[in-house]
Amino acid sequence: MLLIPCPYCGNREEVEFSYGGEAHIERPKEPERLSDAEWADYLFMQTNPKGIFLERWVHTHGCRRWFNAARDTVSYQILASYPMGITPPKLPKTTYL
């Protein structure tokens, strides 16, 4: 069970949240010009880093707001959470073998 820091409500248990996948994926500016492969890339292909991953969460059973969080995919430690529309905070680089 993760203790997730909601930027509005503070630390809450993971059951109150839903996951939203990778954050900061920009919607294509001209979707009608995209090829199928490019669409598929936009919709389905997400990075899968070992280390810090910026991802979206929603506090479903709480304030019902979406926000972004930086989670280390190795330790599951959540290093920061910040409201939508804000540039992610600078975080120390983690290196794993």
Partner: peptide, 10 residues
């Protein structure tokens, strides 16, 4: 006050 879960119900 807060919104949360009680016995899995919102």
């Amino acid at each position: 006050c807060t919104r949360s879960l009680i016995a899995k119900a919102e």
